[in-house]
Design a binder for these strands. Structure first.
Lengths: 195, 195
DNA sequence: CCTACCGATCGGTAGG
DNA sequence: CCTACCGATCGGTAGG
């Protein structure tokens, strides 16, 4: 009979992913060595390989979990019983006002997904496209007159603006997160709806 | 009397940087080996080290040249004798409708600058900040009533939208480059100026 | 779960 | 004696 999994197996998996995400976000996936991740979470390199078969598997698990959580959060915001404008604001807040933990993972998704081999990227890119589809659907509600072929391009313009905030915006600075969300939402909405 | 530098020294330098930029843009700086760059431009690895002391020097030279050319092009577009709105459109066109060569370098600037060590990043980050300053100055002309502390955040929102196009926009697709530029410019301008 | 390693491979450099 | 390279290989380190 195989030995039961340790009680704290899932906790340790999360701890490893948190340490790795912080390291990947700071120095990037290629420069983050398994040795460094191990030290950061008080484990041995061998222990890491007990939880993840390869370094790529670790990155994949991190990004898959993050993107699925992000999609679930977006779907919840978009499913609310409210006017499209209100749901748009909710979406922006979900996307920008993430926890520090989610922000680090989002940076890794933006910067380091490309270091997975193509076959491993495919399911993650499908999740990213689902985010774009959800946004495009919301834009259609906001501006029913917009040519359908332009919904995704506009969604991607918005995603670009939002993702880029990870490179320059610091929540502790002069602009409060709520204000940033409002300004981005208003800029985009007015631009989209202007006659 | 020292032997003169080979006549084609500058040509070879450019050929190396072009091959390296294409490779960096496709697979990223860390995975692009000096050996691969050498093969791509029909040179030996030793020849590369004759032109660039280290791999980092090669990346630095590529990005410094690109950012200085970009700034020069932006300054020319902004210096034109025309209304601010017209100069804004010129700026967007400069930034989006780059040559394939410049697009590859821009992708490298976005994705791989972080793999230089901190000290080497500093002068390049200063050039990037100059781009933001130039845009912020233009936004001030477009909307003199906007709080000065918001000029750079708005400039960065625009930069995000523009830079992100490198990840999804293909010039050969359904949307012509000129149309993309017009849509981005109008979206942002209307959003910025809406009452 | 650790130390001790391996097979492979890297950026950079030697002699000529 | 210089610069411009080449073929070969170094010391060190990575993931596993």
């Amino acid at each position: 009979m195989p030995r039961a999994r340790a009680d704290d197996y899932d906790d340790k998996t999360k701890a490893i992913l948190d340490s790795a995400a912080a390291l990947f976000a700071r120095i990037g996936y290629p420069d983050a060595k398994m040795q460094d991740i191990a030290k950061a979470c008080g484990a041995s390199k061998s222990m890491l390989y007990h939880y993840f078969e390869t370094k790529d598997d670790l990155l994949f698990a991190m990004l898959e979990e993050h993107l699925m959580l992000l999609i679930a959060a977006i779907e919840q915001a978009l499913g609310a019983a409210a006017r499209p404008e209100e749901r748009f604001h909710r979406f922006i807040r979900i996307y920008v006002q993430k926890s520090a933990r989610a922000r680090r993972r989002h940076m890794v998704a933006i910067n380091d997904l490309r270091f997975l081999r193509k076959a491993r990227q495919v399911p993650l890119l499908a999740l990213e496209r689902k985010v774009v589809r959800l946004i495009a659907g919301l834009l259609r509600e906001l501006n029913p007159g917009l040519d359908a072929s332009l919904l995704k391009p506009y969604a991607l313009m918005l995603v670009g603006m939002l993702n880029w905030t990870e490179t320059w915006y610091r929540p502790g600075g002069a602009i409060k997160p709520q204000e940033l969300c409002d300004r981005i939402a208003r800029l985009f909405l007015r631009g989209l709806l202007a006659k």
